[in-house]
Structure formats: C-alpha cells, structure tokens
Design a protein around this nucleic acid. Structure first.
Lengths: 169, 169
DNA sequence: ATTTTATGTCAGCGATGTTGACTTTCCAAG
DNA sequence: CTTGGAAAGTCAACATCGCTGACATAAAAT
C-alpha cells in the first residue's frame, strides 16, 4: 500500500511508478476526458451535431484556410468520415470551402459568421471548465499537466501540436 | 467570454489563463487522449472487441464483485448499452456474473482467468505509455497532471474516483 | 500524354451510444 | 401476505461516427 495523495512532492522519485499509481492516472484520464467533452456535447445536442463536428469547427477556427488534407491528418480520420461531417457544415452555412488560389484542387476551409458563433459557444463552455480546473490546481500543476500530456502523445502528433505556437492568434 | 487580454496581467500567476493557453490545454487533452487509447485499441482489434469492452474489463478488475448497477454508474452509460457489451464478455467466458448472496437480484461481476489475461494485456500496454510519460515529465509534473485532471471532473465523479484508494488491490 | 494528387461521393458495415417498452426476479414495507 | 419498487435482462429502433472499397473529377506534376 502506498500513501500518496498529497505527498507527491519532494524527493520520492521512486514511489510514483507503482502500478497503482499508474492505474490512478489512467482512470483520471478517463473521468476527466468525459467531463472535458460533456459541456460541448450538451450544446451540440441542440444543434443536431456531434463531437466530430465540434472537432472540425475547432481546428478550422484555429487555422483558417487550412486544407481538407491538413484537417484530415490533424483529426486522424478517413476522408469519407470527415467528408460526411464537413458536408453538413457547409450545407448548413457554418463552413465555407473556397477553391485554392495556387492549387485549384485544394479547398481552403473557413468558418462563416454563423460557424464562428457556434465555435465561440462551444469553446466558451470548454474553456470555462478548463479555466476553473487551472485556477483550482494552480500554475505549477498546469505546467505539469501539459508536460505529461505532451509526453503521452505520439511523436508526430506532438510535433504537430507544438508547431502551432501559443501566441498564434 | 472573450480574450483575457494581457491587460489583466500582474504576475505570472495570471498569465496562464489567456484563451490561447486554454486552447493549448484543450488540444493537449484531445491529442493525448487519442494516444492514451491507441495501444489498447490496437489490441482489441485482434479480439473483435471495442473500447467499451475495455472499460468494463478495467473496472471489473479494479473492483471484483461489483454489481451491474455500480458498473453502470461508473461508466455513465445506459444499462442497454452496457448489457450488450457485458453479454458478449460473459458468453465468451471473460466475465462471470454470480448471483448476489445477500440480494439475489444483483449480479456480482468477476473476471475469469481468460478475462484477467486480456485485462493484463490491455493494461500493460496502457501502463507502459503512462509510465513513459511519467518518467519523461518527472514526479512534480505528475502531481500537477493529476491535480488538474481531478479539478476537471464533475464533483460526483471526483468523489467516486477518490473513493477507491490508491492501495485498493 | 500520362501519372499522381486532392477532393468528393456512394454503398455498406460495425461499434457504441440513445429512448422506450416489457418481463422476471426478488427484497422490503405496509 | 400482498404489493410496490429495485435490479437485471431483453427486444426494437435509431443516430453518430469510425472503417473499407470502389469510383469520378479536376488539376497539378512529370
């Protein structure tokens, strides 16, 4: 039996890798991720959209003008799967797909005003929860949180994640 | 609502709550969770099971003898949804559902030897990634990681999560 | 001129979530 | 003892969102 709750500071750098500690981390990821998606999910219900629509909207908002292929590889789904989602968003007037200037095969994706409104509604809810968690845990905990999450990612994805700098507004 | 511009700066304890910082945290959750589930998902493919089976197996292993109702509320799904998964696990001989001793309406769930084998295979893979991330980030980061995740959970779930003590083998 | 790339689309399948309705079993309270 | 309700199981229908495979079109690249 390992006592840990409040005592993971200091120098016990050998204790924290027990299977029980790892199990706690695994369950923390499960429960926290469910909470993390709960608020947007509630909003999306009213709009007849799902989590996949949210993800597409998020990344189009982050990088306006990105191509379908780029979005595809960021989301890690097939083009058929993304296309189903993207089509409804375009049809409903939330996303605009402009033919590429240089390469006319490409489609550059942008949020319309309507799309940007939904994006704000979704990310406001998600940020509110994240902000509350950050405040409750404090700056040092936040740094550790990000470090562990980054270390958990696959290397290619981590590079993609880090490529978009923090101030990239 | 909108950006907490740098006007609200005063010390570095306020800086970390900009919308950009929060967005990074949100994306870190998304990418890390995908990595987190990737290894078990690969294993499950070979067994014709899905992520839902993994979750059921995990929690039955953690609390042998727990009832269907308890598992239901831990997983946060409907009994119909869980039942479909549970039935295949029982039929395939991975899970045993014993009639409750005190209350015969209840079913106490246990992993069989075969079920325990799959559980080990799955959790070994997941723990390996978690262990690597913990090692890379260091003990202080791990503490912060857990703190933020716990703060993100809904209060009821957090209590449920914390109720199972670290040494609960 | 041919090949490759980017995108879109159709069809079908599988896992996993949902609601609603109904049954059986059995504990517990009137 | 009877009755109400809790625990569990089941059937049907549906939605989202992954997947594969096949095929079409346009445009860039060779």
């Amino acid at each position: 039996m390992v006592a840990q709750s409040k005592a993971t500071q200091g120098g016990e750098s050998l204790l924290f890798l027990t299977d029980e500690q790892l199990r706690k981390g695994i369950e923390a990821m499960f429960f926290a991720y469910r909470a993390f998606t709960a608020d947007p999910d509630r909003i999306l219900e009213n709009h007849e959209y799902g989590r996949a629509h949210h993800r597409a909207i998020h990344f189009i908002n982050r990088q306006p003008g990105l191509t379908v292929n780029a979005l595809l590889s960021t989301l890690g789904v097939t083009k058929q799967s993304l296309n189903r989602v993207l089509r409804t968003l375009v049809d409903d007037g939330l996303v605009e797909a402009r033919v590429g200037r240089r390469d006319k095969r490409e489609r550059n994706l942008f949020l319309t005003e309507k799309g940007a409104m939904l994006e704000r509604e979704l990310s406001d809810a998600q940020r509110a929860r994240m902000r509350a968690a950050y405040r409750a845990a404090g700056p040092a905990a936040v740094a550790g949180f990000r470090q562990v999450l980054e270390a958990m990612m696959d290397p290619d994805i981590r590079r993609q994640y880090q490529a978009i700098k923090d101030g990239a507004a």
